[in-house]
Nucleic acid binder design. Sequence first.
DNA 1: GAAGAAGCGGAGCACTGCTCCGGAATAGTA
DNA 2: TACTATTCCGGAGCAGTGCTCCGCTTCTTC
Lengths: 187, 187
Amino acid sequence: MTRALRADAQRNRERILDVAAAVVAEEGTQASLRDIARRAEVGMGTLYRHFATREELLEALLGGRFDRLADRAEVLRDARPPGEALAAWLREFASGVAVYRGLAASLVATLEDDTTSLHASCARMRAAGADLLRRAQESGDVRPDVDGTDLFALFSGVASIADTAPSLAARRDHLLELVMDGLAARR
Amino acid sequence: MTRALRADAQRNRERILDVAAAVVAEEGTQASLRDIARRAEVGMGTLYRHFATREELLEALLGGRFDRLADRAEVLRDARPPGEALAAWLREFASGVAVYRGLAASLVATLEDDTTSLHASCARMRAAGADLLRRAQESGDVRPDVDGTDLFALFSGVASIADTAPSLAARRDHLLELVMDGLAARR
DNA sequence: GAAGAAGCGGAGCACTGCTCCGGAATAGTA
DNA sequence: TACTATTCCGGAGCAGTGCTCCGCTTCTTC
């Protein structure tokens, strides 16, 4: 545990996170940090002391999201048959990607870089997804030559491109369905 | 036809395109235009007179590529059975996406904006792909509830995310294969 | 060769991510 | 409560970005 922040520092940190969440939701992950600082009524120095880099700020925003997806995987695993559980979870995963445009890139980055704190949450989520996948494969619902990384690559890729243009966003679910069907084992 | 350029202008334009092709291949579509100008030994003004915006420069680089893909579609259509022709063409399409990282975004943009000159080449290529798709569907190789736009969305999405990280690039072909299989009709 | 047009180059503007440090606010102590 | 020591803040500043503007050079044409 790191030591407690001073009261004003704590306030500022929360303000920054609130504003950042709003701004990122509006403008995507490449929103201007200066702008975030301005809207949080805080100096650049303040922002950068709390979050040494853009990545770190995104981590704070996204870490919890990953954790929640990992939790959801466990719930779904116990509540549904393997194939359904995986499909439902992938849908939730994909809509998570949609919330923050550009998240997919950050997500991929954590595949390579295990020094970020986001790596841990991301790894846990990926493990949870891989577990659902394994069960679906054992039950014969999903073809065996797919692994967890394939899953994230496919769904991140499709979900993120679907968010780059309105005309594609409309067929998001259809696109995901196509990929999902492709993973199904031929019987 | 626009009137002929002055000799020096013509030279400069070609130099810029050559350098831009190299730089974009190295650094992706968000390469610095200042850098391109510098390496082409040309002032910023010169670059911007020839290509009023970054998009326009990319258009010049990509337009030809789109046209070539459209041509390839016709060749493949006549040389192979429908299912194979489509699969082969999609592979070429995907590797075209790989050459310029970030191309997918530009490609998607042309879906929305029909004022760019890239739109025409892109539309022609998409029509050619859609034609291959239709034939493959009529022959029963590909499921009927897929259209040309789905095709581009899926392959652009997967190909472009595969280029964001080395660990994904290695499984590029496998990922594309998975999507391709998913489009196959169940017999 | 000279006049005219066409094209060139880079200084400059507003922006970006990020750093640095003098000064202000807070927490602990007396 | 008053004082000090530490923690934290703010924004000026640096090097980079995309893009514009305009005085000057180079080519073309007669």
